[in-house]
Design a binder for these strands. Structure first.
Lengths: 114, 114
DNA sequence: CAATTGCGTTCATGTCGTGAACAGTTGCGG
DNA sequence: CCGCAACTGTTCACGACATGAACGCAATTG
């Protein structure tokens, strides 16, 4: 059986690409803080984004620092960011509709039990 | 350090109390199917509901069957069901508002990137 | 030239969901 | 009566996964 690498859900992908696009010169620790992930998971996701070809880890900070990479979105990464934003939006809108239904149902229940 | 028993979130509590109230004579397997839980977790949650005094496991099905309990809501269980329904509703409405905000933000982003 | 700081990376550890397996009970057909 | 199949609640070994302390390295500071 082929091993299925745990793939990053849209929500995470969206937030990471958004953060990185706005601020490529950011450490994994800082990124993990801003997105609310553990350091280990951030590292894992970042590698996945790089392997997917959406992000490139170049080192340009202060005179070619070996560490302290800059995580820049590739052209593919930019279009993926746009795509995932749209997908994410549609998802949210679907959730929105479902919530509407659930709320009206809940209101009825709450009224009955009062 | 005191061991913190994993407590059942409102959503689960709501769904379980609702199902049990509508149909007390239900097996754990059937309940797990309807609510979408694993058997093990269903068993765990049921015990928690019983320990909390919201549900009583009496055996009344076909001539005092030793197994095949009936899970009936206690008076406390009934009022908790009403309470959790209201809490759950408020929660959903809060989510609803947050989604509204997120969606408008996402729409802007999607428009910019187009 | 230490010492400190910050970096990316690793991985032992703990947490938690899962469902196959088990023992007990009932109902049914022979 | 007596298997036997079909159900029940309960358990627990297993796997999947998140976590963050620890490590080696580079750059900066004193």
């Amino acid at each position: 059986m082929a091993i299925q690498k745990t793939l990053i859900p849209d929500e995470l992908r969206y937030q990471l690409l958004k953060k990185l696009h706005a601020n490529p010169d950011i450490s994994q620790r800082e990124l993990s803080r801003q997105v609310g992930l553990s350091l280990g998971k951030t590292n894992y996701c970042l590698k996945a984004l790089i392997e997917a070809g959406w992000v490139k880890a170049g080192n340009f900070a202060r005179s070619s620092n070996k560490l302290n990479y800059a995580y820049v979105l590739t052209p593919k990464g930019v279009s993926e960011k746009a795509a995932v934003t749209v997908r994410f939006l549609q998802n949210k809108q679907e959730q929105y509709r479902q919530l509407e239904n659930e709320i009206t149902l809940l209101k009825k229940e709450a009224a009955v039990q009062k």
